[in-house]
Design a protein around this nucleic acid. Sequence first.
DNA 1: CGTGTAAGCTTACAAGGTACGCAAACGCCG
DNA 2: CGGCGTTTGCGTACCTTGTAAGCTTACACG
Lengths: 181, 181
Amino acid sequence: MLSTERILAAAVEILDAEGLEALTMRRLGLQLGVAAMSLYRHFPNRDALLGGVVNRLFAEAVSAYAPDATWPEALTGFGLAYRRTLLAHPHAVRLLATHPVNVDLGLELLTGLLSRFEAAGIAAHDALTAVQSVGVYVLGHTLAQVGTPPEHHDDAALAFYDHWFDSGLIAMVTGFERQLV
Amino acid sequence: MLSTERILAAAVEILDAEGLEALTMRRLGLQLGVAAMSLYRHFPNRDALLGGVVNRLFAEAVSAYAPDATWPEALTGFGLAYRRTLLAHPHAVRLLATHPVNVDLGLELLTGLLSRFEAAGIAAHDALTAVQSVGVYVLGHTLAQVGTPPEHHDDAALAFYDHWFDSGLIAMVTGFERQLV
DNA sequence: CGTGTAAGCTTACAAGGTACGCAAACGCCG
DNA sequence: CGGCGTTTGCGTACCTTGTAAGCTTACACG
């Protein structure tokens, strides 16, 4: 029996194993032992399906961490966890870039993190700005990393990206620390 | 007479006027008064053509500004100019996200900016980290902005994105200022 | 048992990228 | 000036992919 969940799970499998180009309706149907057109009972079109994959992965990223006590620590932890999840699904990063995460879902998933700002007396509006800034930094950075040609995928490159990521993240978080009282 | 330059210029035109989905080989040929297959004399395939568009737009962005004296000012100016160019070609932003800019071209275009770090005695390696961090922040932020559904494209939204962008950029630059002695 | 509804299937079509080989135009040489 | 190789563009055709439309099967419920 087909279900939204089963379809999305299969989609992520294909994505991870074979990349974005391989994620066609027919290929996905094959994976599920079903005809391509059957998928349209659950999604109006391919784009909606990809959107579902995006929301699923973002949820995975955010659920994978528990926010620390202070907001700078929690914010840093969010950035690290988000990056870790994205790098675990390298072929999905381009999807995240082109299919924005559902805003309401994003806010709901991030309440834990946002509450750390609230506890420090920071306006919700400023908290959101900081969290979103880190979010787009992580996405942009990961895009750059997964976009490098495969011949550069050695240990030195890994170390370079790790260091670069940390520097930028630290700069941003400390910058916000000064900015937000 | 067809040339790489003419093709890329026409591609950007179509992109700006009709969006990324409209940029097909046939449509581009039409624009140039030429058959689709003729384009393959200048590009091995569509992806290479899109890569050309990306490099062209990045060059436009970087050429559009002269770096200020101190590196924090120059870095901020770069971020602002890069964002301005991306927002001037909203349909191209997804391209920039999926087709990384040629590294050597990027470095060459950014020598002016990097020299400001050098003048302050900052290691080339650290300078690159800072510049790239701002670059991916700008791209990520612009992706988020152009990805918002059109019904939210009012003045309030514009102000929101502007403020968010500035906050994140300032945080990052001041963060690097503290980090880089 | 009859029937209505949900789940999946079959077929078919329209785009779109691009391989392949031909044709025309141009430059260079004798 | 004539021949010819090379460059530039074209026509045709093929394959892949998303998806519209309508059919079929099977199960629930009276």
